[in-house]
Design a protein around this nucleic acid. Structure first.
Length: 510
RNA sequence: GCCCCGGUGGUGUAGCCCGGUCAAACAUGCGGGCCUUUCGAGCCCGCGCCCCGGGUUCAAAUCCCGGCCGGGGCACCA
């Protein structure tokens, strides 16, 4: 348990904590955190859209910065122009998504602007004899490393190293021919930690921000180690996959005599049945399987937003999941429950009939149903649905099992009818009574309906499928793009598009 | 293979450091009831969990050892 580890290092802090638990679900205090002095950061690679998995580190970082009145930094770790290539739009999207989540970003830094800084530190380390330029073939180096043997370049004099470093910068070495390594314990139990690489050459980076200006690029561990210190970061939140990187980075901190930030490693967060992986998402988009990074089936922040998930719900979820180090897969029910609580009071009600079937009602008189937009908030007003004799009422195929001859149903807020005949082409019914009480006493079921509707489709993400439910929405429904409303007896939806009188909505949850 | 983590109801989390107050808490889910012009919400009742085996102890979810299971890392990715 990582808390136990933190306790070892900061026992005094946990004493405090004991006295004040008892509180509602919230984040535990942070070790070594002083009011006003906490600096956290979120450091994504803008090579894909921000998703729920990334949101864990981001929200924890931001939340603690706020709790302690500190600073939250957004840093784009865009130092791999080759394998995990950044794309310009993602820099913007990440900023937009953070804003949507309600973040206050105090500073923004971009690693690709900071290459000279990394070069300076690299040179310092070389001069200090703590780093060297290795020109071994990667396989050769790996072989030596695994045996715990120094590579031939390791102990060469500083002047030779500096000369090679200059050659790296000047372009005399090509990609793959030279790399700067940080010296570590060659007998470190984990071979992967031994003399880890800090900077490498990329011949034709064509970086979206710096083009071909720089050919020597830092690797994540080096850039991150330098930046966290340079930017004054005090607390780092990141996935447990980074736990071993801490070991590497600490060497740099030790050489410079810096203090390593407090780190909290959390497990991976995912939602059942939802794809988060950037590479899988990209592939799916390319193959035409997904409509884009905001396809409602995906777990990107943009997709969740599009589905009508509120930012507060995401925040609550992350805080509830907390600092746990094991991976967690939350269920949709869980997120939906949180979101429902938030959205329920704001969502106005409308009738949407999926797969409409006409119902012809005999012996009924003209009647106008006046229904509140929200049952708990009558002050919001009402909507009026007119019934005219001779014209059909549309009901949903989903309710077909209720429409058996001899059954009685109540058309909600209108009147009660007896079913005479029923098929998927149409239903014949006879007016029975208008009073709700009659339906209630007889325990007749209630269905929603529409007389004059406007075309509407609802996209319902179901795992990896996107089911499109076509139907009609009550004609006067006052819906605008981005509204979150409840289609009664259908579920909460977000209005995605209103065009030429046609409405498209995306299903959030029941 | 080597190196890290983790394992509490169907799901997610709390409790574990400092053993008793924990036949275990909260949320969600599921079942039932009340209320109610739908659904939902709300209120009430119920269902259901400490991975396994040893050990220490008067006492173990909690400490120790072993096992099993799961996740992550071992890149000139982040």
């Amino acid at each position: 348990m990582q808390e136990a580890k933190l306790r070892e290092i900061y026992p005094e802090f946990f004493e405090e904590r004991r006295t004040k638990k008892e509180e509602k679900k919230s984040l535990p205090p942070l070790p070594k955190a002083e009011k006003g002095k906490v600096v956290t950061r979120f450091a994504p690679n803008p090579d894909g859209a921000f998703h729920l998995g990334n949101a864990r580190a981001a929200i924890l970082s931001h939340e603690y910065a706020r709790i302690y009145g500190g600073k939250f930094i957004l840093r784009f770790d865009d130092t791999d122009p080759k394998v995990k290539r950044p794309e310009p739009k993602f820099y913007e999207w990440i900023k937009e998504d953070l804003e949507w989540l309600g973040f206050k970003v105090d500073e923004i830094h971009i690693a690709s602007d900071r290459l000279e800084i990394y070069y300076d530190y690299a040179e310092k380390l070389i001069k200090m004899g703590k780093a060297y330029v290795c020109t071994c073939k990667p396989e050769k180096f790996r072989e030596l490393r695994d045996k715990g043997i120094a590579c031939p370049h390791r102990e060469e004099p500083v002047e030779v190293q500096l000369e090679r470093w200059r050659k790296m910068l000047s372009g005399e070495y090509k990609e793959g021919e030279a790399v700067v390594r940080i010296k570590t314990d060659l007998k470190h139990p984990n071979p992967a930690v031994r003399d880890w690489p800090a900077l490498r050459i990329i011949d034709d980076p064509n970086h979206p921000r710096t083009g071909n200006k720089y050919r020597v690029w830092p690797l994540y561990n080096f850039a991150s180690a330098i930046d966290d210190h340079e930017l004054g970061v005090t607390h780092i939140f990141r996935g447990q996959e980074h736990a071993e990187n801490e070991t590497r980075q600490r060497y740099v901190y030790e050489y410079f005599g810096w203090e390593y930030p407090v780190t909290v490693h959390h497990g991976r967060l995912s939602i059942e049945g939802v794809i988060l992986s950037k590479s899988k998402t990209r592939k799916g988009i390319q193959e035409g399987k997904y409509l884009g990074w905001d396809d409602p089936r995906l777990g990107t922040i943009r997709a969740l937003k599009r589905r009508g998930i509120r930012p507060e719900a995401i925040r609550e979820l992350i805080i509830e999941v907390g600092l746990k180090r094991s991976d967690t897969t939350i269920s949709w029910d869980n997120l939906a429950a949180i979101n429902r609580r938030i959205v329920e009071p704001i969502a106005n009600r409308y009738f949407f009939v999926a797969d409409p079937i006409p119902m012809y009602v005999e012996e009924a008189k003209e009647l106008v149903a006046e229904i509140p937009l929200h049952p708990d908030y009558p002050e919001r007003g009402t909507r009026k649905l007119k019934f005219k004799p001779g014209k059909p009422v549309y009901v949903s195929k989903d309710d077909m099992e209720l429409f058996k001859p001899g059954n009685f149903v109540r058309l909600k807020d209108l009147f009660n009818v007896e079913i005479l005949e029923a098929s998927e082409d149409g239903i014949k019914a006879r007016f029975h009574s208008v009073e709700y009480e009659v339906a209630r006493e007889n325990r007749w079921r209630m269905v929603h309906w529409v007389t004059e509707g406007r075309p509407c489709e609802v996209w319902v993400p179901e795992g990896d499928d996107l089911v499109i439910r076509a139907g009609v929405l009550e004609s006067d429904a006052d819906v605008k793009v981005d509204d979150i409303v409840q289609f009664e007896r259908f579920g909460f939806v977000r209005i995605d598009e209103v065009k030429d009188g046609k409405v498209r909505a995306i299903f959030a949850h029941k």
